[in-house]
Design a protein around this nucleic acid. Sequence first.
RNA 1: GCCAGGGUAGCUCAGCGGAAGAGCAGGGGACUCAUAAGCCCUUGGUCGGGAGUUCGAUUCUCCCCCCUGGCACCA
Length: 515
Amino acid sequence: MEKAFYITTPIYYVNDRPHIGHASTTVWADVQARYQRLRGRRTFFLTGLDEHGIKVQQAAEKRGLPPQQHCDEMAPHFLALWKALNISQDDFVRTTEPRHKAVVQRFLAELHSKGAIYRKKYHGWYSKAAEQFVTEKEKVNGQFPAHLGEVVELEEENYFFRMSDHQEWLIRHIQEHPDWIQPSNRRNEILGALQKPLEDLCISRPKARLAWGIPLPFDPEYVTYVWVDALVNYISVPGYGTERFASFWPADFHLIAKDILTTHTVYWPTMLHAVGIPMPNRILAHGWWLMEREKMSKSLGNIISPQDYIEKYGADALRYFICRELQLANDTDFTEERFLRRFNADLANDLGNLVNRSLSMVHRYRQGNAPGRGAAGAVEEEICKLAAATFDAYHPAMESIAYSTALEAVWKLIARANRYVEETAPWKLAKDPAAASRLDAVLRLLTEISAALAYLVSPFMPDTAAKITNQLAIRDLTESRLRTLDLLSDGHALGPPAPLFPRQSASDCAASRAK
RNA sequence: GCCAGGGUAGCUCAGCGGAAGAGCAGGGGACUCAUAAGCCCUUGGUCGGGAGUUCGAUUCUCCCCCCUGGCACCA
C-alpha cells in the first residue's frame, strides 16, 4: 500500500481542559491533513490524550474518582472541541487503551533486550506534598519554597535509558538533516544544548509511589514514566510490530509547541534509534500565544477560550486567525482586537465581500447563470497568470506548513480581484447593451476566481469553502481547471448568494467595552 | 550567568551598501455591484544610542542601552 502522509499532534495531558494552545497545534495539523487529502494523498492524522502519570492520579484522588473514570470524563471535552473546530483526525488515541499499552510494553522489552536500560539508585530531595523529586535549582535563597512542604532526602532505585549512548549519533543526524527540526532557532537551541554531555533518562517509577501507569514488562514492581509511554503513541497507533506499520511510519510531521521540543528531538529520536526504528521526517515546533494579562484580566478576568471564539465568530474564523497569525519561530500576542481586525479586514471585507459582490452581480445581471467567456482581453489574461502564480506560491508554502505565506499569496489574488471589479465596473457595463460580451467576460472571470478561492481556502476554512461551493452550485474542485480559471461550463446555474462573514462591529470587542 | 535572536511609521513586520517599504489602523475623495464593504489619494519614521570603515550606512565593524527566546529526568 502507498505510504500514508502521516502527521501527529502531541497527545494532550488530561489534567487540563483544552485551551487555545491545544487548539492551535491541532488546527495546524488539521490544515495540513486536509491539504494533503485535497492533493489526493492517503493521509493519516493522529491526535489523542496522555492519560497516565502522577498528576492524573492526584487529580482523580482529589475528585474521589478512580483515575480511569477521571480520564473518561476528561476525554469528551477534547473531542467536543475538536468537533466544534472541524478537526478531521483519522484516529484518536488514549494511552489507557490496550492497543497502546501493548506496544509500550513491547517497546520497553525491546529496549531492555538491547541493553539500553539499566537499574540504578537515584538519590535526591523528595517533596511529599508535591509527590515528586525536586532539584537544587528550585531552591530560593538556599531553601526549597514553602509550597513544596517537607522536603526529605530519599533514595530510590529506578530504571534508566542509556540516552547518553546516542549523543554523537543525534548531533550528526541533526547536522546532516538541516530541516529535521524546524524552525532553525529551535534546531540551534538543541544543538547548543547537545554540546554538554547528555544524561541518561529515568523511565520508571516504583508502583508504590505511582500506581497509574503501564507496568514494566521486566519488573512488575515499576511502571513506566511519562516519555516512554506518551511518545510511543506515534508508533503504537499505526501498529508497530505489525505489517501495516510500514505503510504509515515514518511520520512526515510531528507537530508540537516549543515546550516539548526536547522530548521530541532528543528523548524520542534516541529511543527510536536504540530500538532501530527509522526517524520521523520532520519535527516542527511552533511558538506560544501570549495573552496580554493586564488587559485580559482587567476587562474580563479570563483567558482565551477557543469555545467562546467559535461561538462568537465561528470555527473558520478562529482557524484562520491561528494559521495567519501564530508564528512558527516566535511567540505571538493573542488579543480580541487583533482577532477582530483580521476578521473584518481579511474575511469580511476582502474575501467575503469579493465573493458576495461577484455572485450577486451574476444574479443581478445574468439571472444567476455563469456567462460564457465573452470578450476577454489583456486584463483577464493578466489575472489568469496571477491565479496560476498563486497556486505555484501556495503549494510549496503549504507543504512546509508556512501557512501565513500561503495565505498572503491567496490574499494577493483576492486584492487583485477586488481591484478588477473597480477597473471593469460591471454596473456600468450592464447599462450599455453593446458591452454585453465584455460584461460576460468579467462576471465569468469573477465566478471562476470564487471557485479557485474555495479550493485554496478549504484546508483552512472547510465550512467557508463549502459555503462558496454551495453558492456556486459546484461539487468538484479539480485543481488543474481551477488554476487556469476554467472550471465552469457556460450557462451553469449558481445557487443563491449570501455573505460569508458578517462584519463584526468593534463594540463587540471586549477591549472596546472595557474602555 | 551562559547561548541565540531582535530593536525600522500608532500596531505587526519586510528591507540589510547606493535617494526609507508593506499590511492593518488614521485622514480625504470619486463611485455604488457588495457585508457603509471595495477602489483611488493621503498623514505618519533623525531605521535604539555612540564611534568607526566607506565617495556613500537603516544596511558592514566595535562599544553601550533595552527587549525576547532557550538553558534538558523540573510541569
